[in-house]
Design a binder for these strands. Sequence first.
DNA 1: ATGAAAGCGCTAACAA
DNA 2: TTGTTAGCGCTTTCAT
Lengths: 342, 342
Amino acid sequence: MNKRLTLKDVAKAADVHVSTVSRALDPNSSTSLSEEVSNRIKVVAKELGYRPNRIAAGLRTNKSMTVGVMIPDITNTLFPPIVRGIESTLEPFGYATILVNTDNIPERELRLIEVLRERGVDGIITVAAHRNDPGIAELIELGIPVISLNRRLDISTVPYVINDDNVGMKLLLKHFFDLGHRRIGHIAGPRDLSTGQIRAAAFSEGCKAHGLPDCADLIYYSDRFEEAEGERCTVELLRTNPDITALLCANDRLAIGAYSGIRSLGLRVPEDISVTGFNDSPILESIPPRLTTVRIQKFEIGQAGAKLLLNALQGGAKGPIGTVLPVELIIRDSTCAPRSES
Amino acid sequence: MNKRLTLKDVAKAADVHVSTVSRALDPNSSTSLSEEVSNRIKVVAKELGYRPNRIAAGLRTNKSMTVGVMIPDITNTLFPPIVRGIESTLEPFGYATILVNTDNIPERELRLIEVLRERGVDGIITVAAHRNDPGIAELIELGIPVISLNRRLDISTVPYVINDDNVGMKLLLKHFFDLGHRRIGHIAGPRDLSTGQIRAAAFSEGCKAHGLPDCADLIYYSDRFEEAEGERCTVELLRTNPDITALLCANDRLAIGAYSGIRSLGLRVPEDISVTGFNDSPILESIPPRLTTVRIQKFEIGQAGAKLLLNALQGGAKGPIGTVLPVELIIRDSTCAPRSES
DNA sequence: ATGAAAGCGCTAACAA
DNA sequence: TTGTTAGCGCTTTCAT
């Protein structure tokens, strides 16, 4: 169990002062150093296998070269590609990422923010933000760079990268309309998440644009983006509005839940009710009927978020407050023309 | 952008010395402190919203309360539950986890170990170990606690938690045997991963136990646990041994690849060739024919590994060097009796 | 029971 | 160009 080498050890070996070593090893040291000494030190350091202690450096510089990544649950297939996109982008710049799972529980989120702050993270990327998020708001006040991915906050100062929820919904709605559907319901996401809110708003707008009658009563809000919620809302919605022929769900999990709800009422997908989702989760290819959905860019959203954070960290020109990634309509087997009422 | 509070601020507010505050706030401080002062300090600290700076504390105590978690790729469905098991177990004890993806590339792994060491992690949990892993070996030499999950190393000093690969393979083999198969092939995992090696050994052993003729030539080793490799090995194996009626694959991804390989030869699963996997990945339920496989405990393996690490970190009695978690045979539609040769 | 002081490994003024 | 020195925020030994 060799004690770990310090600058002092290198200094002794190279017969110079610690600060000289520090300068020699600092890639962007502004101080002038003679080539010869600098090189000698580098050689000695490499020979000895010296590795800097970033904890100590961080204490002094107030930079930990560590960023916090907050997600609801790594077990949800939506998040691993995002996390990977973040890590792949940050790692080459020397940043490591501390990962925490919030389970969308506000108190847990607050505690985890503390955990991250205690570790002195230089910035935070959250994929778990609520529209109104006191924890994030506080971070902003403290001047800690925060980027929100996938969701956006109501306060406008937090830079965000989201997918084009609006266009995605419009594409789905147009698809339904083109197939001939006129009574279309929406299982909306939670009201406190921007994804839920934006998609529901797009639904309303889209209905109006297509000249459909007021659809406010055809929107049922789920409490969580979970299958069970999708099922519950679907059953309630269909009970109240048995003439619906198409169901636009705010994400894939709600849509899979809708399948169950529809079947529990003795109806079939898509013959009786067409269903769509959002996100294009990998499982969908293989759950029959294969879900028509909107494909979002997952790895890329992580990548874009990481770049934004890097920019903020390196104090470059202020980046965009909002970045919207394009989406793609994926038509599969869960949608078809409505049955003629003859 | 308020400057962050330090012990000094609390000390000033409570009108005591910094060290007194440090003692009062340390839950397991051995030094005696008067109840009254201690309580007063705690109240003041809470009122002020003081949060300790673990970076500074870590510099002094040489404990960062951070552990490194190394996985091949968070995007692979096998790993998120393991990571979640680790995080859920460690978090209540005040440990945060730094996550890194190795992609099973040795050089990358070495660099990432450095990244973790520079951050002063107190220990490392790796789900990405190679049987012969120089990086891990060095960590052990340095006295940094390491736990290997899912895989084990050839050197016997690294504690590991694995699933019962041996029994899993025997169960699959018995299942084949009971169905009447006698010519059984094995698409093995990479030789440099313990999972590949243990499963291949179990296959050989099992064949012998069932009185099957020497099966060494019915084992084809893949280079990576990937679908494309499964397909390649399957085609090669079936070309050389067209009389095979059952294929035991070392994991689910290889098995899915085997599906493609079998079909490319104009054969059907399971009518012509029965196929099995290992791990029970979530997708399988919905890829036809649903794969017969072995279910391993994913969350639990993370949990067990985290507990082992906690034990090592808290310097308790030495834990077990090896922990083997039980597995379960999941019979689905990819296996059936061989066609009678009549 | 509390205060004083040293020091963890590093960086950054300031001197020389 | 290099050395000296102070100090980041905390813990801990040693005094008191």
